[in-house]
């Protein structure tokens, strides 16, 4: 068995407008099978992916936001949101559909530095 690597997925796009958010989620779910150290970061518009109460019926698109609540069952427990990104969008932790760790910009930068692999979406 090879050693465990630190994988970070950086999500910076809102859901539905582009395919990035959904693609990232799918890659994350697949990565979970490899027993690596996985972190998810929500930065800039990526924070919108975690907004509670998404209703996609009217745009005839699958609402994939419930899947973020399944991540815990996939042993993916490291979810980070950058404070400024969240606040700039008028959001607080209560607006998010999962528990996250809120980081300052400096803490976020340090966390990125510690990774072995960083994937941007």
């Amino acid at each position: 068995m090879s050693e465990v690597k630190k994988f970070m997925f950086v999500n910076r796009k809102a859901p539905y407008g582009t395919i990035y958010a959904l693609e990232s989620l799918e890659v994350v779910l697949i990565t979970a099978a490899f027993d690596q150290d996985v972190s998810l970061v929500f930065l800039d518009d990526g924070v919108y992916q975690l907004k509670k109460g998404q209703q996609t019926k009217g745009i005839e698109t699958k609402n994939f936001s419930p899947a973020y609540r399944a991540l815990d069952g996939y042993d993916i427990e490291k979810l980070y949101v950058e404070k400024e990104s969240m606040e700039a969008r008028g959001l607080s932790e209560e607006d998010l559909l999962v528990d996250v760790t809120v980081l300052s910009r400096a803490e976020m930068g340090e966390l990125m530095d510690q990774q072995d692999v960083v994937l941007s979406f």
């Binding site: 979970a32 699958k62 419930p66 399944a70 069952g73 996939y74």
Partner: peptide, 15 residues
Amino acid sequence: EEYQIAPAVRVLTKA
């Protein structure tokens, strides 16, 4: 119904 995804086998087994 709850998560809108089909669980991976490992996750299903545990659950």
